[in-house]
């Protein structure tokens, strides 16, 4: 190897960025060992590069930067996640329709249910949650002509929406609870509209991406709660004592 080639290849033979083929690198090293001028130049270049490189990298990182970054990323992610959860509502609504249809509720036992997702989505009422307690929810539904008893074993601090939705052509109260990235939809079913005996016979199950439970209302024998939820269990949605019992 001649001096001109060696000096050209010098920049490609930095310690941390081996860009030369093995044979080229060996030839270069041999030349630098044999040629005092090129050897001295290589040494001076590497020393200067090392010197400037250290100065270049010598930037103090501000304290707390790591935490601030994670906080900003979290703040950016939450609104997008919320929009994604809202898009999942239609899917869970369809799942609720399928579940109720399979159970063969009154007058529809042997007929497959028609899932009208557009109708479900368009009839979703999303009022502001100003008094998210069971009695406040009950008064809301009563003001709309629907008598109901809201479940008391759920954590109402997680209640995000409540309203009347159309299920199989019937107006049904719906409560939506959210916990981190999971959600639980509670449909309050009446025996005047649905076959509760059949529904209660299938207390717990799981589908694709969701689970469900059916619980009788402790305060009214004519009502049952169909709870469709994501996540591994209902425990995170339960209020205090019930959550511990569920564990």
């Amino acid at each position: 190897m001649d001096c001109r080639t060696a000096r050209f290849l010098l920049d490609f033979s930095r310690p941390l960025t081996k860009e030369l083929e093995e044979t080229e690198a060996e030839a270069l090293q041999d030349h630098l060992a044999d040629c005092s001028e090129c050897g001295a130049l290589a040494q001076a270049e590497r020393t200067a590069d090392h010197h400037l490189g250290q100065a270049m990298r010598g930037v103090p990182v501000p304290e707390g930067l790591h935490e601030r970054l994670l906080q900003r990323l979290d703040a950016e992610r939450r609104p997008r996640d919320r929009r994604r959860w809202l898009r999942r509502l239609a899917g869970l609504a369809a799942a609720a329709c399928l579940v109720l249809g399979v159970w063969g509720l009154v007058g529809w036992r042997n007929r497959p249910a028609r899932v009208d997702i557009d109708e479900l989505a368009s009839t979703m009422i999303v009022p502001g949650v100003s008094n998210p307690l069971p009695d406040g929810v009950e008064r809301f539904f009563q003001s709309r002509g629907v008598y109901t008893v809201a479940p008391t074993d759920l954590n109402y601090a997680q209640l995000r929406y409540y309203g009347l939705v159309q299920v199989q052509g019937k107006r049904v109260p719906l409560l939506l609870f959210m916990h981190e990235q999971d959600q639980a939809r509670v449909y309050i079913l009446s025996d005047k509209q649905f076959n509760l005996a059949d529904a209660l016979s299938k207390k717990q199950n799981a589908g694709s991406g969701y689970r469900y439970e059916v619980r009788p209302s402790p305060k009214d024998d004519h009502l049952a709660y169909l709870i469709i939820y994501t996540g591994d269990s209902l425990a995170p949605f339960l209020s205090g004592g019930e959550a511990r019992a569920a564990r």
Binding site: E19, D49, G53
Partner: peptide, 13 residues
């Protein structure tokens, strides 16, 4: 030149 002196960047990078 900044990328060069951060060392882990080759000419090709």
């Amino acid at each position: 030149v900044i990328l060069y002196y951060f060392e882990e960047f080759s000419y090709r990078d």
